[in-house]
Amino acid sequence: MTFTKDMKMADLIHKNYLLLSIISRFGIPLGFGDKSVEEICNEYNVNTYFFLDIVNSYSNENYITDVQHNNFSIHSIVRYLRKTHKFYIDQIVPEINCLITNLYQNCFQQKDNVKLLLNFFDEYKNELLIHIKREEDVVYPYVLNIENAYETKKISKKLVAQMKNYSINEYLNEHSNIEEKLLDLKNLIIKYLPPTSDYKYRNKVLAKLFQLENDINDHSRIEEKVMAPKILEMEKFLFSHFSIDKQNSSDE
């Protein structure tokens, strides 16, 4: 089913409780009463169509963005992406870490092996942090500048120089697959770690890993399929409007 602006916000949560974490990222607290999605979004200054696009695609992989209404700003997308990063770093990653530690403390025979998983998750965490840092330090500032130039029809020398060497296309090419290690960890826990005396934490770790994977997939989708195409269009416009020559790379 597709969520619409006239539905009650509370019903969204009833349909898919995983949306809870998404809704918090928008800064919307619980206690909606019977207010509709649109009413709540207006109350908290959230673009309703952007909100619907996010919750719909989160709940349904095959959901196709309503092109008529996808005029939300890069600004709002980046704000949401940043909040999501924060959710990973502050919440779900420490939670998983803590659960694996609990698993470690609660099992007897497999201690050494669980320790390996703990290290593995640590490696993954570092990879994720590097990925996030690159986006927050380089990519997001760049896309915000592009949007700004596009809106104001004014471009700084610095941005022109940057555009000659960098394009959002490069981001798409380099955007690394950060799910691989997560998939591996899931399989190690499901298939290859021999039975452990504890099953509660083992199950909880898995459930969280599935949630994180789901969330990251959705997050990457927004980066690649929503943010990047908009920027690509704006770049194209800026190139012709300011007649910027794309510098040929050094192999010319």
């Binding site: 050494d112 092996n113 390996l116 998983l117 593995f120 490696e123 691989e180 290690k181 998939l183 591996d184 960890l185 399989n187 190690l188 298939k191 290859y192 770690l193 021999p194």
Partner: peptide, 22 residues
């Protein structure tokens, strides 16, 4: 076959299955 894609994942598999000694 294993559905494990990274080198560190393969390493852990190898340890778990005693293909290498830690």
């Amino acid at each position: 076959k294993l559905d494990i894609h990274t080198v560190s994942g393969l390493t852990i598999y190898a340890v778990l299955n005693k293909i290498i000694d830690i």
